[in-house]
Computed example of a mutant assay.
Amino acid sequence: MGSRRVITGEAVALDLPAASLITRGGSLLIDVMAYWLLFGAMVLLGGYVVMFSMDPAMQAALSLSMMVLCLVIVPITVETLTRGRSLGKLIFGLRTVRDDGGAVRLRHSVIRGLAGFGEIYLTLGLAPLLTAMFTERSKRLGDVMAGTYAVRMRHPPVRPMMLPVPPAMAAWAQIADIGRIPQDQATRAARLLRTLQTGGKKVNMAALSAASDRIADQMLSHISPAPPTTSSIDFLSAVMAERRNREYQRLSRAAQRTGRLHQRLHTLPYA
């Protein structure tokens, strides 16, 4: 499934990639095995020692109580305390969140836990499988009822594009207004430069040069002043490297402001 864009209360767009059906299934299988092992351990360690002296009705009641504890109450408690995690989700790098991207609360976990006991165990996993196949973000029935879904928390590492500003373009890049470049053009330029950086001898330089010429022509209308005469690849390298440098400086300033604020809030009289 694709990612869902969520707008937070601070008007910040977040891309939350939904977990796939396979990873959700693997996570659920691990959780089910863990909770059944817990139930078996409780029975072996002490449940039947007490139950042998009971009448059959009390034995059945105690067995049902332990089953509800292990298969309903424990999963609800774990998910609530870990804000949407479980053993299976931890292994697969998943987390359950609300549809708006926020952390799940007790009521979400209760709905998911109660619905999960019926849909997972009473249908032998068939209900969540069918529901996940026909919902947008691989939701099971408990997710539909609670307004939640699972997101991927781990992402494969991406090598940063470290192309420097060409020396001949350095002075121009310092004063250029490049803040109005559309994101789609910047994305295409980044992909082209990454191909140039990582492609090695397999790169078709003629096709790459033609593509860079087209992207550079589109960018020129959004940049001022005009750049000095150079190749389109050097021009794109200068623009994207300078964008990276300015973004790094902006994030550094924001981190410094956050650090100063954190220091003020943790000193008297606020501490």
Rank of each mutant, 00 (worst) to 15 (best):
I181S: 13
M67D: 10
N245Y: 04
G142R: 12
G118L: 13
A171T: 14
M66Y: 09
V239P: 03
Q218H: 15
S221D: 08
S3A: 01
V49P: 01
A132T: 08
M240W: 05
T80E: 02
M54L: 15
M1S: 04
V6W: 00
F39C: 02
C70G: 02
R140K: 15
Q218W: 15
S86F: 03
R180E: 12
A11M: 02
I181G: 12
L236T: 04
A170H: 02
A241Q: 14
G259Q: 13
A271S: 10
A115S: 00
R107K: 15
G118S: 13
V72R: 04
V43K: 03
M54F: 12
M169G: 01
G25R: 14
T195H: 04
L28E: 06
A226K: 06
L265P: 00
V12K: 15
L69G: 11
P75T: 10
L37I: 03
A13E: 14
S237A: 08
I233Y: 02
I76P: 02
L208S: 14
A176T: 10
S27A: 11
F117A: 09
H222K: 07
I120H: 07
D234G: 02
E136V: 09
A186K: 00
K89C: 09
R264W: 10
M162Q: 02
L44T: 02
M51A: 14
G118Y: 09
P182D: 08
V144W: 12
L129W: 12
A241R: 13
W172E: 07
G116V: 03
R264L: 10
P227S: 14
Y248P: 01
F39A: 09
L163A: 09
L124P: 14
Y121A: 12
R188Y: 11
V12M: 10
G40M: 02
R4K: 03
A13R: 13
R250C: 00
F117Q: 04
I7P: 03
W172L: 07
P160F: 11
L81F: 06
K201C: 10
L94G: 03
S231N: 14
I215L: 12
A241F: 15
L141T: 06
H262W: 04
C70D: 04
M133F: 08
L62A: 10
R137W: 07
I111E: 05
P157L: 06
P182K: 14
G2H: 01
V78W: 08
E119M: 14
A254M: 13
A173I: 11
S237R: 01
E10D: 15
I233V: 13
L28T: 04
I30E: 08
Q174C: 04
M145S: 00
H262L: 08
S86R: 03
G116C: 07
R4G: 04
I30C: 11
